[in-house]
Design a protein around this nucleic acid. Sequence first.
DNA 1: ACGATGATTGTCT
DNA 2: GACAATCATCGTC
Length: 193
Amino acid sequence: MSATSVGLPRAFFERDVVAVARDLLGAVLLRDGVGGRIVETEAYHEREAASHAFVGPTRRNRSLFLRGGHLYVYRIHQVVCANVSCEGAGTGAGVLVRALAPTHGLEQVAARRAGAPRRAWTDGPGKLCRALGITLGDDGQDLVEAAGPVRLVAGPRAPDAAVVAGPRVGISKAVDLPWRFRLVGSGSTISGG
DNA sequence: ACGATGATTGTCT
DNA sequence: GACAATCATCGTC
């Protein structure tokens, strides 16, 4: 409920997708006031094979090609995951939000993740979407103009010492790119996950 | 119209 | 750590 909550500007997203993925650590993702601090992200770009945008625009991935700052929500297996589009219009690039630390609307989060231990409430891309109530209906929303229920609020910049970069997980192509970023607490062990 | 394919999660060992 | 569930999307016939 801070009066200083500031939505991230368009220019933040219209940059190299890898830089945005790193800088998104610490930002707060909310849906209807429920959400938390982003602690893990991954960058995807149309020029590498692991990206949904690699094959060019399709009905499903079209949001990735919108100019930076739009939401791309897709379904995989039985789950929904959320990205934020980056770079310019026509370029398929986006940051996958892989994990966050709940800070707002804890009751809602707990209710939606009933049955899961607290540590597993929002530690995966599908889990956090369920916890926040993000659905396919949120696909294509513009986060900068905040016309929809999803908001992305700036946080203090994560110090480099607290950021760990490594290979992305859950993919079979372009596995060597170190485009996964995690925010780790002081004293935390760095494990590949 | 048909078949292969996942940017995952939960469960079992 | 390994493995199956499960279905919309996408390319091909």
